[in-house]
Design a protein around this nucleic acid. Structure first.
Lengths: 155, 155
DNA sequence: AGCGAATATTTGTCAAGGCAAATATCGCGA
DNA sequence: TCGCGATATTTGCCTTGACAAATATTCGCT
């Protein structure tokens, strides 16, 4: 029993493992990102990182837009916003045209935090893909995109 | 605001979206698999499906081995085994050589269930990869494997 | 033989996310 | 203008999985 290492990849046939493999790679990336964040002394989960990223890149937007953008449930988004607002990284402002909605915007603190995080992000992705050539990285991205579309537009 | 569709892929740069993209593809595969299972009248989550798959392919094994095999926490495994045993798909037997451990084995019902599930599995993976040639599927698998190793063996 | 580290299983606790219900608005059409 | 269906946000409830502590064994070493 002891020392009996069961590497999921060692015994998985190529065909069956796509779903599993994706999960493994993703969880390693998440783990690596969160480790990098922690090393920087930043207390953020991967999801929160994605939320800040989206806000930093696309500017202020509604909570719903944000939720759709990161594929997160609306209720979960409310709670993440609570946390991020509590940490001082963003602000809930009233929406100009729509009184139902919020305008979520980064605070100055949130913006300056993002400048640290953007490197962190690239470091991890670079490390993950370090054994892939530029052409291979493009192909990987292309394949994944095509698989995603195949799953979504199921004819 | 309304009708303002924000496709995560439309605005994501290739570089940044690897982690996100993996998550999207994986969750679509999981969703598709669970939908297929439900359509067959089988009440199983993706994780439970993976557990049965591993048992069906590799034969009886310890709960710990199973947990490592599907990359699941030991505590979570205990609870999944509770459920699967309750549904009658597997059995916890005492381990011959190690009184700490269990020998988890499929019941007849579990074995016959698996025969239905194996098709289901292939259908979903086939649909997911239907726009990829055989060579591309191999490459996708290869790239993912290499990324996984790069992340794990971080020199 | 006996001790201590490692491993197996179970259970308690916690955070994250999905789903549904409640409330507030919006906006289109009668 | 009124009403109704759709959308935005929040909250409660539930499930899942990670982490840690507790208990039972096992294994290597002295």
């Amino acid at each position: 029993m002891r020392g009996m290492v069961t590497d999921p990849l060692a015994t998985a046939s190529p065909q069956e493992s796509l779903g599993v493999l994706l999960g493994l790679v993703r969880s390693e990336i998440v783990r690596a990102m969160e480790a990098e964040l922690a090393a920087l002394g930043v207390d953020l989960r991967f999801t929160q990182f994605l939320i800040l990223k989206r806000l930093a890149r696309l500017g202020p937007m509604t909570a719903s837009e944000l939720a759709r953008g990161v594929e997160l449930d609306g209720g979960a988004m409310t709670r993440q916003l609570d946390q991020l607002e509590g940490k001082g990284y963003l602000r809930r402002c009233p929406h100009e045209q729509d009184r139902r909605a919020l305008r979520i915007e980064l605070t100055d603190q949130g913006t300056s935090l993002w400048q640290q995080l953007t490197d962190c992000n690239e470091r991890v992705l670079e490390a993950a893909q370090r054994s892939l050539s530029e052409a291979e990285r493009k192909r990987l991205h292309d394949y994944l995109t095509r698989v995603l579309h195949a799953l979504r537009d199921k004819d």
